[in-house]
Nucleic acid binder design. Structure first.
Lengths: 135, 135
DNA sequence: GTTTTGTACTTGTTTTTTGCAAGTTGTTGG
DNA sequence: CCAACAACTTGCAAAAAACAAGTACAAAAC
């Protein structure tokens, strides 16, 4: 580690252009399989995806599971540590909503709109849903 | 841009290991000069610092000013767009506070403690102070 | 039951970014 | 005048990312 600063601690773990996008896919787009992450809009390359999934699992943000029906499939899901990144992701979203102008998807309002109305409640509701889906 | 997702928008601008640390130095450590950023705990290298300062200015997160007394010195300060990254930085800090265990500086509690007590008020107070110092 | 497809990767190569050391240009205090 | 300072720039080696292709094994199709 480069320092004992809390911000730096987080940045060393997920301060790059890809890691939080994988978490987002798990949180908001209900993606669970390798191929689903691969086909996201940002077009992550396969070696980077494999690398980040391994790192995320190693640090305990996500965990791997077996699929009952399809033995060859591996199911990825969030841990509590991963779910707790929700406020970080939401704040980045809110900042972008303020400064990106009309460059963003119109669908953003579904989530961000509620956050602007009542942040604490909207966060709590979303976190509960994530816990039910993932833990 | 890789996509029209709000999270991705933010990550393209400050999704790396260094950019937010410079913003942090401006926000919490009252750093204003090139050499001050250079001497932070994380030891950024000089070419990366120059590159990030140029990017941050280009995107309107910070602005360059002249120092009255010392003509050779350049003063960096935050814009409103930069100040609005405060919640993002705080959320990363709160997350780290929860998961880093005892790896973090004890000084963290000065800021993070108040955030846990009354987030909205603490954020508003800090933002006001930043506006007075920078704008 | 054998070929084909699907899924989760790995490997190799090129390009880009980072990290490190040193050099450059104008400033200023003595 | 001159050494130290401040804000960079430049050059090069190392690491990481992007791109293209290949592999191993399960399952579906024929």
């Amino acid at each position: 580690m480069r320092s004992d600063c809390p911000l730096n601690f987080g940045l060393e773990l997920f301060g790059d252009k890809w890691t939080l996008l994988i978490i987002r896919d798990l949180m908001f787009f209900n993606k669970r399989y390798y191929n689903e992450f691969l086909s996201s809009a940002e077009k992550i390359s396969t070696n980077i995806l494999a690398d980040r999934l391994a790192l995320l699992e190693k640090q305990g943000f996500i965990c791997k599971g077996k699929d009952k029906e399809h033995k060859q499939k591996i199911v990825y899901s969030l841990t509590g540590k991963g779910i707790d990144l929700l406020p970080v992701i939401i704040e980045i979203g809110l900042w972008s909503d303020k400064y990106a102008g009309d460059l963003l998807s119109p669908h953003k309002e579904v989530i961000l709109g509620r956050m602007k109305q009542d942040r604490e409640k909207a966060l709590a509701t979303l976190k509960e849903k994530l816990k039910q889906k993932h833990l």
